[in-house]
Nucleic acid binder design. Structure first.
Lengths: 93, 93
DNA sequence: GAAGATGGTTTATAATATAAACCGATTTAC
DNA sequence: GTAAATCGGTTTATATTATAAACCATCTTC
């Protein structure tokens, strides 16, 4: 059996990627609310996705507050699609 | 977002369950070959599925050799199906 | 009867996920 | 104006998980 990309086979990272696949961009706060994750956990998992080149992170400002904007990259999009294909084999979909 | 049953959200356990969903029963050796897992890892993960009540384990003999036969239980089947449904939300299937 | 296989289990280690504690800046309350 | 909460995160410590290595008992082959 093919292996499931371990970077995506994690509940929170998968949730994040799933969201990013459907919206042009999303910021840290939005992702935290949508996924119900703690900020610490989210921060760590975003870093991992970023280090893998699956998402981009832009740290800027919204007014006077910091704002981190995330987008899925082409590489991330491909990886996600491959993951879905592999998973379908496991699930018999 | 709903949470993914952590017992099933593990590569090897998912592979095992996926196989068991499609065959009336499967023994240890067959599962090891199909999944390409080490015996130790498989043994541990089967125990976890068993402890959760997702599979049954029958340790018997085939001729003179020991033979462990695994089957998915009703509970396991339900859990697997719920997992698939939840996952579909993540994957937008 | 010693030297592999076979069919596993136990145990030690590496990797992962998660939350708690923290930090700097900003707003609010007094 | 300054003390206290709040916001947007990051770092670090801890619990959980996955995984492989080492092991054990039985059987087979030479």
């Amino acid at each position: 059996m093919k292996e499931l990309d371990p970077l995506l086979h994690s509940q929170l990272r998968l949730a994040v990627m799933s969201i990013l696949m459907n919206v042009d961009e999303a910021d840290f706060v939005y992702l935290r609310e949508k996924t119900d994750a703690t900020a610490g956990n989210l921060s760590v998992q975003l870093d991992k996705l970023y280090s893998a080149g699956y998402i981009s992170l832009e740290k800027g400002f919204a007014g006077k507050k910091t704002r981190t904007v995330c987008k899925v990259t082409g590489k991330g999009r491909k990886a996600f699609e491959a993951y879905v294909e592999t998973l379908k084999e496991y699930l018999n979909l």
